[in-house]
Design a protein around this nucleic acid. Structure first.
Lengths: 140, 140
DNA sequence: AGTTAAATCATCCTTTTGGGTGATGATTTT
DNA sequence: AAAATCATCACCCAAAAGGATGATTTAACT
């Protein structure tokens, strides 16, 4: 944005110089004055468009940016690290058995974690858990 | 976009009128010429910014806009209307029984539809189905 | 009229999920 | 050191989900 201001300032300086130049041109009455005005107008229109594009480009990037986790919600719900890990893998579509294998623990452990997780999220099944977790910005 | 073009055309017409006006102003050598040029330049810069904003606003709305279903994927996968309805409700976190009640059919019917759906989506369980359907832009 | 596709339903069976209860060990907090 | 928390695990049971097989009805297409 700083760069935009600097460049626009340069354009303004050019503009002021252009006006001084026109002041000299008045000694020679000439229709080509309109030509210079056209150039200046087109230049500044172009610059305006460019500024407009830059103003929104930042916002555009921001909208399309990376997932930002709501750490407050995570803390408020008192979800432990392990529970969160299980949640992530549930969201990836893994079965309990698959999750147990991936985390090198027993199936019982996963069931325990997911049960506790469901309690904290106040849901009855994994589909609800995933949906709620996305809504609360716990997972992407 | 059409409106942008029309408005910009109007500005151009104003510009041309402005030039003619300047032509008259040459009979009275006056420093206020610079004043008129300034107005014209500022006007067109503003218009340029506006055009720039409009050019990206469309994209911006599109990104932040409502869900747009990929009907091609839906057709390609050969998912029937009823199957899609079941998918939607699965994604909302409903159990098969709940879905059956909502659609006034038997549990068996829902199991049939979801089985067929899973085949078409090439998944093994509802969490995978929901995830894949979102990735394919079948559901929001 | 015959064929096809979609929707509906049933039955059987297996697997998976989820709730409850209880326990132990490790780590963190008081 | 004691208490609390977290992770892990087991067992029991019921509910839910999922796969397979088969059938009927309806609507659309040839």
């Amino acid at each position: 944005m700083k760069r935009t201001i600097i460049l626009y300032g340069l354009a303004l300086a050019l503009f002021v110089s252009g006006l001084k130049f026109l002041e000299y041109r008045f000694f020679v009455r000439d229709l080509s004055i309109e030509f210079y005005i056209s150039i200046i107008v087109v230049t500044f229109t172009g610059l305006g468009i460019w500024v407009g594009l830059r103003l929104t480009r930042k916002k555009f990037v921001f909208v399309g940016g990376d997932f930002k986790q709501d750490a407050n919600a995570l803390q408020r719900l008192d979800i432990t690290k392990r529970e969160y890990e299980v949640l992530e893998l549930i969201a990836q579509g893994l079965s309990n058995k698959e999750i147990a294998d991936k985390l090198f623990v027993s199936l019982n452990t996963i069931k325990t974690h997911s049960s506790n997780l469901f309690l904290k999220l106040e849901v009855s099944r994994r589909t609800q858990a995933v949906q709620k977790a996305k809504n609360l910005r716990l997972i992407p």
